[in-house]
């Protein structure tokens, strides 16, 4: 979204600083897709993603004074969204409500071939990973965090971060294979 580090964006941000609801709505609408894509990678469901999205935007609107206009708003927003998702993950860990790895492994996948997998479907594979795998995979592969940063954020060792990433890839390959097998069976019948 290169066009939004522009005068229009600055105007929107100025309106948001004045707590102007219309400006806030426009900014929200503008960055909705970008922000919720991040949220979806860190959560299991769209509902959970929406919750994190709105938590993140609430922080954006209430902490906008601290944004340095010389820097990229998109980068700032992505940091806030990711941090909010990680906060959410930490809360969930405290509540200890996660499913076990075994349960997550047994989740069935959609019957589509990999070549025809849509972005949503690929994303759904990430969502089916266990939280620790999903977070490490998203942070490392998609958002470009180093293992040291991941270890620091998730309060785990660097080795555990590397191990989780490796296992996450393995799980994704398994799920992709299963999709292919299912697709083959379906066609053979």
């Amino acid at each position: 979204m290169p066009g939004y580090d522009s005068a229009v964006l600055h105007e929107l941000l100025a309106g948001c600083l004045k707590r102007n609801r219309r400006s806030q709505e426009l900014l929200y609408k503008q960055f909705y897709g970008y922000a919720i894509s991040i949220c979806l990678r860190y959560t299991r469901s769209r509902e959970e993603a929406k919750e994190i999205l709105n938590d993140a935007f609430l922080k954006v609107f209430t902490k906008l004074e601290s944004f340095d206009t010389e820097r990229s708003f998109k980068t700032w927003l992505s940091r806030i969204v990711i941090n909010t998702a990680l906060d959410h993950y930490r809360q969930e860990i405290r509540r200890d409500v996660f499913e076990s790895v075994e349960i997550a492994e047994n989740v069935s996948v959609d019957e589509t071939v990999i070549s025809k997998l849509s972005h949503e479907e690929l994303l759904s594979l990430i969502q089916k990973l266990t939280p620790s795998y999903r977070l490490v995979f998203s942070l490392s592969v998609i958002d470009g965090y180093t293992h040291e940063e991941i270890a620091d954020q998730l309060n785990i060792s660097v080795g555990a971060s590397k191990s989780n990433l490796s296992r996450a890839r393995e799980k994704l390959r398994e799920m992709l294979s299963k999709i292919n097998i299912d697709d083959y069976d379906r066609v053979a019948r």
């Binding site: 909705y32 897709g33 990678r41 972005h119 949503e120 690929l122 990430i126 592969v141």
Partner: peptide, 19 residues
């Protein structure tokens, strides 16, 4: 997966803004 994430464009839901 990186490409998929970048190209993903979820549809805007006005209810989210209302919330």
């Amino acid at each position: 997966f990186r490409k998929s994430s970048e190209e993903l464009d979820p549809q805007y839901d006005p209810e989210d803004w209302n919330s």
